[in-house]
Nucleic acid binder design. Sequence first.
DNA 1: ATTGAAGTACACG
DNA 2: CTAACGCGTGTACTTCAAT
Length: 365
Amino acid sequence: MQERIILLLDMDYFFAQIEERENPRFQGKPVVVGADPKHGQGRGVVSTCNYEARKYGIHSALPISQAYKLCPEAIFLPVQGELYGKVSEKIMEGVRAFFPGCPVELVSLDEGYVDISNHSMIVDMRDNQGKWNLAKVLAEKLKEEVLKQQKLTCTIGIGPNKMVAKIACEKAKPNGVMVAKSNDAARFLLPLNIQEIPGVGLKTAVLLERFFKKKELKVQDVKKASKEALQELLGVFGITLYQRVRGVDKTPVCVEEKIKSIGKEHTFEKDTRHGEEILLVFRNLLSDVAKELQEQELSFKTITVVCRFQGFQTYTKSKTLKESSKDGKLLEKESIRLLLKFLTENLKPLRLVGVRIKIAKEAQG
DNA sequence: ATTGAAGTACACG
DNA sequence: CTAACGCGTGTACTTCAAT
């Protein structure tokens, strides 16, 4: 099996960049896309912000109330999901046209992997170095193409697998290209913080620090652990991590995008015990989910209701049906039953309610 | 022994 | 008082029960 060449295209500060494009007078000013800050009382978080806003310490997932404190003069904008979705589709169409026949995997609205190993121009290349050089040239041309078509900048990372491409892309942001070819990949990873490895979040990092009795762990440090030790510490992910710190990631770029679940949730402006308000919101969530279910012509097997109470404790209750169903009325009946159980066994004010359905396996083409 | 169900934890954009 | 902490989706774990 020949080695692969994987490319990751990631749009720069996507939502905020689209807003700048639509409103050129925003350019050069801090722009924050996310929840309504409501003069500091808002309960949501920052979705995306531009680099001017980042100078103030604002970043993705920051509570919007904090963002407002850091820079009240920033331009705060709501998330226009439909618009971003349309732009995303056009970009990915462009990417597919640029690499005919190559699999493209959309991982979110603003990023997609392309396996260019079998691209005709790459295949025609005699030596390996030539292939990697060509990959870089193609990436730069693709960036120009995206800029020309969409007036948006992006960053591209290239590597022998998805993980390395992803990390290379992070390093090249914004508006850059970086190649970490196979021979260089393992060396390139050594000095990185362990949390820069995809899949290693805060909790996993703390477990690893405890194991090594050392802070600010590098990839280099974690490489010293045996496969068995990592498995003991992290379970299945331990094996994956053992491979990842060595630059190994065999996960394929896969085109299929089956929907596995559909869910909606809502955080109240103020924690509440008002039964009618809760039920009204909950029915709206249900109707959105049912609508999506119908549009996609899917059926569900499991219903999960989630409640977050005052204090942020979050619980779920679920019900699995004997037979899969596409009946919105059944969904409503069963999920309200679950919600009422919550409301009778926990008397604290409610912060959030949500409902999620797991799509039945059989009914998906 | 295996599978399914319920509930939780963690990760990512 | 002492943080603040949305939404949507995915994977994997633990525990318990039924086959």
